[in-house]
């Protein structure tokens, strides 16, 4: 029975405007955990409390109004225009028989502006670059107007510039009061964007706390199995960086 658990002993909470970075090796259950938090996957045991309510009692629609999810990869069989794809974020706010109204499209314009992709509005979503596609998905989740954002590896497959622009966007969104959980493969992202870090290994939390406490040389060795040096850079940057030892 024991091996059937995907994860165990995971316990954390998140406040308004807080960014939590989920770190851990491949296959450790980061994506699965994120999907459980949106109730895409149901929990067999344990509880998730959202806004004082137990999530298993909420409908998918109620959850989607409060919690938005950006998948790691997106594939659409049909080349919807970016505008049509983003307006789909309104689904939890619309009735079964409704179609989006002008108001919904106004919200779409707003979130496209926030993310900086207004110029893409009429492009087919299947012809976007990896970076553009990620931004479109973030615009879509903003149109959903949730209070919590779950981002599954938001920076994967992005070039250096786009990675940093995306982290900057995440920081800005957190300032507007959104709580964000994102998974990442770069401990540096924890120093750049988050106030809280959860280190996962083999389905268990091996560390939880502020980036300064949690992302240390010993913990990273335990989790990833390699030696890492952490240095504090001054010179106007004032940030810690991780240097893996080869």
């Amino acid at each position: 029975m024991e091996n059937n658990f995907i994860f165990r002993n995971i316990n954390f909470s998140l406040k308004e405007g807080e960014v939590m970075c989920l770190l851990g090796p491949n296959g450790t259950g980061k994506s699965t955990l994120i999907k459980c938090l949106t109730k895409i996957l149901p929990l067999d045991e344990g509880t998730i409390i959202y806004d004082g309510l137990e999530m298993s009692n909420l409908s998918t629609e109620e959850i989607a109004r409060g919690i938005g999810y950006v998948p790691q990869a997106h594939f659409s069989a049909f080349p919807y225009s970016v505008r049509d794809l983003i307006v789909m974020g309104r689904a939890p706010h619309l009735g079964l028989f409704s179609v989006p109204s002008h108001k919904d499209f106004d919200l779409v314009n707003e979130s496209m502006e926030t993310v900086g992709i207004s110029h893409l509005a009429d492009r087919p979503c299947t012809e976007l670059s990896g970076g553009e596609q990620r931004l479109v998905l973030i615009a879509r989740v903003l149109t959903q107007q949730p209070k919590i954002l779950l981002l599954d590896e938001p920076t994967s497959h992005l070039d250096l510039g786009n990675q940093i622009r995306l982290l900057r966007l995440i920081n800005n969104l957190a300032k507007t009061g959104l709580s964000i959980i994102m998974s990442s493969h770069f401990p540096d992202h924890a120093f750049i964007s988050s106030q809280k870090v959860a280190l996962m290994k083999e389905g268990k939390l091996t560390g939880l706390g502020s980036p300064d406490e949690t992302v240390n040389e010993e913990n990273l060795r335990k989790v990833y199995g390699i030696d890492v040096k952490i240095k504090e850079i001054k010179e106007g940057i004032n940030r810690k960086i991780c240097i893996p030892i080869v």
Binding site: T38, I40, E61, A64, P71, H74, G89, P92, Q144
Partner: peptide, 8 residues
Amino acid sequence: EEARSMGI
């Protein structure tokens, strides 16, 4: 999965 995350 994506549809469910949008409340469907």
